[in-house]
């Protein structure tokens, strides 16, 4: 694959989504907003099944957001649970006129993630490099070539997660919301409470930085395939 072939490629096609993994933007566009509003009203009325439906519908996406932001499954589980707890307590303050339920829930979760990031900043700066969870992946060139495509794919996923973790939190959240959760720019601007132009700039810078982190691995993969 060379630059000319890349330049000649068509723009990225629209993605297809599964039900649980369906991004918020698609959900907001497809789902009946009246039904969503009724679901919230039933939940506020004390109907446990309505709250359970909300949890089942949005938990995978919130967990993914926390996992991709923190890179740690245990922390992601705790943070996603705390986020849902906060959402449950603040459900009375949700205003459907301000945006979809998914956007509102993501905004609350994002605030929790930023709080967690600020709290743990000092801990991260003093973390020992001996901790295997904090050890950055070894340089790609120093690894032996793995002929197994499955192994290579798993390693690539780990490195994508590691590259995400190396982005600044502002760029990381923008890239996650756009490229993993498929929010549109307007929704990201509502979640992050920044202008759309800033959203666009952050997404672009985050992608470029991510591509630079992944360049050695991706070049190697191109040679392999």
């Amino acid at each position: 694959m060379n630059a000319a072939s890349i330049a000649a490629r068509q723009p990225l096609p629209a993605r297809t989504f599964t039900w649980l993994g369906r991004p918020a933007a698609a959900f907001g566009k497809v789902a009946d907003k009246v039904e969503e509003r009724q679901l919230v009203q039933r939940c506020l009325g004390g109907e446990a099944r309505a709250w359970e439906e909300i949890v089942r519908r949005h938990s995978p996406r919130l967990y993914q957001l926390c996992l991709r932001f923190t890179g740690n499954s245990a922390q992601a589980e705790d943070l996603a649970q705390d986020a849902l707890l906060r959402i449950y307590r603040a459900l009375t303050s949700y205003d459907p006129a301000q945006g979809s339920l998914a956007t509102w829930m993501t905004a609350l979760t994002r605030n929790l993630l930023i709080d967690h990031y600020r709290r743990s900043r000092l801990e991260r700066s003093t973390d020992s490099l001996d901790d295997p969870n904090n050890t950055p992946p070894a340089p790609v060139e120093s690894r032996q070539r793995q002929p197994d495509a499955g192994v290579w794919q798993r390693e690539l996923r780990d490195e994508v997660q590691a590259a995400l973790a190396r982005l600044s939190p502002e760029l990381r959240e923008a890239v996650i919301l756009r490229d993993l959760q498929d929010y549109d720019y307007k929704e990201i601007a509502a979640v992050l409470r920044i202008p759309e132009g800033t959203v666009k700039s952050r997404i672009n810078r985050g992608r470029i930085e991510l591509a630079r982190h992944l360049a050695p691995r991706l070049r190697k993969g191109t040679r392999m395939l």
Partner: peptide, 26 residues
């Protein structure tokens, strides 16, 4: 050209990230 190639590959890699499974007790 290399920048564009890298961006395309990075976006493909992001799209290949699987949806994580929820822990059973979540």
């Amino acid at each position: 050209g290399r920048l564009l190639e890298g961006l395309h590959s990075a976006l493909d890699a992001l799209a290949d990230l699987p949806m994580p499974e929820l822990p059973p007790d979540f």
